[in-house]
Design a protein around this nucleic acid. Structure first.
Length: 644
DNA sequence: CGAACCGTTGGGTTC
DNA sequence: CGAACCCAACGGTTC
């Protein structure tokens, strides 16, 4: 038997401590171990990732690479710039690999990717070793012990978890690592096609990370933000296992905080420091193990002299919610992240619905602008110009720092969907995906469904007020003053509703409340927009619309949703794109043939204008661009035409 | 089977 | 000022 030559494939497990998969690799007693990262074009071009999360990823990779080198000066994180599906078979041959080891990943794309890679490994005679480590429980096990169904409530997770058994204690980081073998790459690099590039709006120059397979210096280095062509990151939150373990230690040192933490009682208005742990981005990239977190907390709780908090509100409870969302996503795959064809997501006729590729049934990443006012509200929401200081402060904090408090996320999500704009939760999820440094598809999508009352939660009459809610924890308005500095000098009486401020006071406090957020400040006088709608009025409209949608009771996989006949069930004057003749022909699907027929049949100039408007494609940045070559639209069109 | 109760995180009024 | 209660009312689970 030849001695094992092992590739350890790092993905969302950028750490050395508590890695069951890395332990499995070392247990093989390999002759050589290659710690690698495959620079996947799916992540570079297809996922929405802003500069702040890129920075966090590169931080995490660089820190891990340094830690590997500290254990073995010959080793590092070998970063190889090619899609894993084409790269790995070539590596198997070039390095005479016997084993491929990685941590299980149940994300929809990751499953497909790993299935492909496992088939290729089998073909190459390479043994694959997979270990669970990303969540407290294996999501597939959770489903199995939840009667084969997705975990949709925390009690289901707790019941299934009790059947699975104890959560494993963390594994210490290895004290040494085997040498890598030769690192020859005597094969051709397959350079990916960079279009469509969903991250083009994140760049201010060309992306150039595929210039050479082992990087511009041939040293397998982690790419730089410069190579990625990214705009400058603005977040103060930085990544890496070293920082993660330091941050955890600091939290654990405060025994009262750790043992009595109750999420609903933490303040979303707190900043410097924030009221929650901010460990979520480390959990996402795997620079912190969830079991390390769980047991360090549990050990404090079990020796705590006072009354400790309990799941689901306690710190460990937060990890259970994470597992719940993974257990839901793992069962539903791609359909989990969209309404269309989702068996567990309620259908609500929101504005700005996702465009669906009729062939695959999957969201294309684009959306339909059914209503110009909703589009304007969406853009104002995204860029923090709604005229509601609480909402705007949160969205500005999100954009610049990449992190906001969980309850702040509730506030902006409720406002965008069922409690204000009546805009599709998928639009909000897209923005969070782009800007959050802790973006985790399962948790992000799950929480957007929760807040929009389309899954996990149904009490839509409980609605967050952008005025009353922040007042509870921040009557002075310090949070708003920090992130909406033009209102810094406003009296606390008006800080959450500045449009009520007398003109004389507006002038005295240096900010005029007027316009829609597009107006420039004049001299030393700032301008802050008027609220974009009357909130109590919108709340009433939304609750009424939600009540109607609930009574109709469709889910995303209902035949009426799939074929578009849902329209007949909703009133023409209700919220949402419900107007039978004016709306897109089939559910959220744009049927190209029908669209073309309609175009030909256009008679009035009014209709003509509308048809032309539909041809504009709105990017995830809310910027209009021409639909054409290089867009996902174009790709889909090509695919369809080929079939015809 | 129906009623009661519960669900991590609402707002407003009353006491 | 904090706790208790109502508002108008969801689905899922328990009894």
């Amino acid at each position: 038997m030849p001695k094992p030559r092992v590739i350890y494939w790092f993905r969302t497990d950028l750490r050395l401590h508590d890695s069951p998969a890395l332990k499995a690799a070392l247990d093989l007693k390999p002759e050589c171990l290659y710690p690698i990262w495959t620079w996947d074009p799916h992540y570079v071009y297809r996922a929405r990732v802003g500069p702040n999360r890129w920075q966090f990823l590169l931080d995490s990779q660089n820190d891990l690479s340094a830690s590997i080198t500290a254990l073995n000066p010959k080793s590092k994180l070998f970063l190889i710039r090619e899609a894993p599906q084409t790269l790995l078979p070539k590596l198997f041959r070039a390095w005479q690999i016997t084993h491929l080891v990685f941590e299980k990943d149940t994300d929809a794309y990751a499953r497909e990717r790993d299935d492909t890679v496992m088939a290729l490994a089998k073909k190459a005679g390479v043994e694959v070793v997979v270990r669970t480590g990303r969540t407290l429980y294996d999501p597939d096990e959770l489903i199995k012990f939840n009667k084969g169904k997705p975990t949709m409530s925390i009690s289901q997770v707790q019941a299934a978890g009790a059947k699975i058994g104890d959560i494993a204690r963390p594994i210490p980081a290895p004290k040494s690592l085997p040498d890598p073998g030769n690192t020859n790459l005597d094969f051709e690099q397959e350079v990916p096609v960079p279009t469509p590039d969903f991250n083009s709006n994140q760049r201010d120059r060309d992306e150039n990370t595929y210039s050479a397979i082992a990087g511009p210096n041939g040293d397998f280095a982690v790419p730089t933000l410069n190579e990625l062509g990214l705009r400058k990151p603005s977040s103060p939150h930085r990544g890496g296992e070293t920082l993660a373990l330091e941050a955890l230690a600091k939290i654990i040192a405060n025994k009262t905080y750790t043992a009595t933490f109750e999420k609903p009682n933490t303040a979303p208005t707190a900043f410097e420091p924030q009221s929650t742990t901010l460990l979520s981005p480390h959990l996402h990239f795997g620079s912190l193990s969830c079991r390390e977190f769980y047991w360090r907390v549990q050990d404090v709780v079990s020796t705590f002299k006072g009354k400790a908090s309990q799941p689901p509100t306690s710190l460990t409870g937060q990890l259970l919610f994470r597992d719940m969302y993974f257990g839901a996503q793992a069962d539903m795959g791609h359909s989990f992240a969209q309404t269309y064809n989702n068996s567990h997501c309620r259908f609500i006729p929101w504005h700005l619905p996702s465009e669906i590729d009729a062939e695959t049934g999957r969201a294309t990443g684009e959306y339909q602008t059914d209503d110009s006012q909703a589009q304007e509200w969406f853009t104002r929401w995204k860029y923090g110009r709604t005229g509601f200081p609480w909402i705007d402060a949160l969205m500005r904090q999100l954009r610049t720092e990449g992190w906001i408090h969980h309850l702040g996320r509730h506030a902006v999500a409720c406002f965008l969907t069922r409690g204000g704009c009546y805009i599709d939760w998928e639009r909000g999820a897209d923005v969070f995906e782009e800007w959050l440094i802790d973006h985790e598809t399962a948790c992000n999508v799950g929480n957007w469904q929760w807040l929009s009352c389309t899954a996990f939660y149904a009490q839509f009459y409980r609605c967050y007020s952008p005025i009353a809610f922040p007042k509870k924890t921040d009557p002075e308005g310090d949070f708003v003053r920090r992130y909406v500095p033009e209102l810094e000098r406003f009296d606390k009486k008006y800080i959450y509703e500045p449009w009520k401020t007398p003109i004389a006071d507006q002038k005295a406090w240096g900010c005029i409340i007027k316009g829609d957020g597009t107006e420039e400040s004049k001299g030393d006088m700032h301008v802050y927009p008027k609220p974009m709608f009357d909130f109590p009025e919108r709340r009433e409209v939304c609750i009424k619309a939600m009540k109607k949608a609930y009574s109709i009771g469709l889910y995303g996989n209902d035949p009426k949703v799939l074929d578009g006949t849902w329209r007949a069930l909703f009133d023409d004057d209700a919220e949402g794109p419900t107007e039978g003749k004016q709306g897109p022909p089939g559910a959220m699907v744009v049927d190209e043939q029908k669209e073309a027929d309609e175009e030909e049949a256009v008679q009035s100039s009014e209709q003509k204008a509308r048809t032309q408007k539909k041809k504009e494609v709105i990017t995830n940045a809310g910027q209009k661009r021409e639909a054409g070559q290089g867009t996902l639209d174009a790709m889909v069109v090509r695919k369809k035409k080929k079939k015809v």
